[in-house]
Design a protein around this nucleic acid. Structure first.
Lengths: 153, 153
DNA sequence: GCAAGTGGTTTCAAGTTGAAACCTATTGTG
DNA sequence: CACAATAGGTTTCAACTTGAAACCACTTGC
């Protein structure tokens, strides 16, 4: 081993994001950021993670442009961590992961949290994958193409 | 440190799935499984991962019911790894991650692979989150509710 | 002026990762 | 049939990461 292998150079665009968020804590930090948490201490309390680990993860998320630091609005010397547009783009990943978790990881009869539409209070719809013309697609209806293929079509 | 912390018991249904797939390799194995890979050697060649690591990850994915082993169809003594229904449920997570990667991790002008509808060869639509009545929702339009809240609404 | 709170960094033991070597069973090959 | 090659792993061990606790610096509250 030289170093934990990085997917930074990978061709596949599933692999590369894992450099940024492919560890045990980063996605949970992002989830908490969506829930409105902004301060180091808030994240630490919410996650129960060691401070050195949280510090490293926040730095990595900032380095990847997922969070950014802004001056604290209360005028204190500290700063806060807020999601960038790139970070907010992870919303769909979190929704997908949550729906998968709701389906397969909730114990029988066990209460759990799930995502609702604020306006109606009703659960949101399940994610669906659609073709350009609106047809509903399942995994078998899709394939991967590279840039060149797309230009030819 | 006692042990790498596990989210197995977490209330949050984003945290729990991370026990199953929250490492650097598991999601890439699942991605390859969607691409039709089934054999130990195929995964190893595709990912370039050390065999001991691949072995541990496959075992973990099988233990979590994401992959299952089936006898090799060629009658050989070995088996193959195929996605279960639970594993296929990760399709949306992979699509979400891929779309995020396409948007934010592709170098300028750099060719990359992306997902198309097999029938038309055209890119699939971006994922969207919808309310039960079909309204398009953004992150701020949603919140988390627990089971009890839902029953009251 | 001093204790408490916030936001970290440092230290170090224990756990994880990865490359390479090794093992075992099956499949070609002469 | 002997022999090498291939598939599918397990074992070993050093380097790296993780996490708990201690420590540090700066700001508040009293």
């Amino acid at each position: 081993m030289v170093k934990r292998t990085s997917h930074h150079q990978a061709d596949c665009l599933i692999a590369r994001p894992l450099d940024a968020i492919g560890d045990w804590w980063s996605l949970l930090i992002v989830r908490d950021a969506f829930d409105g948490l902004r301060r180091f201490g808030e994240f630490q309390k919410s996650l129960g993670v060691a401070k050195n680990i949280l510090s490293a993860r926040l730095r990595n998320l900032v380095a990847h442009g997922i969070l950014e630091t802004v001056p604290a609005p209360d005028g204190s010397a500290h700063h806060e961590y807020v999601l960038t547009q790139k970070g907010r783009g992870l919303f769909y990943v979190l929704v997908a992961l949550r729906q998968w978790g709701e389906t397969y990881f909730s114990g029988p009869g066990e209460p759990y949290t799930f995502m609702v539409d604020t306006q109606s209070g009703r659960p949101i719809r399940r994610l669906e994958v659609h073709a350009e013309d609106g047809r509903l697609l399942s995994p078998g209806d899709t394939r991967l193409a590279d840039f060149r293929n797309q230009e030819n079509s």
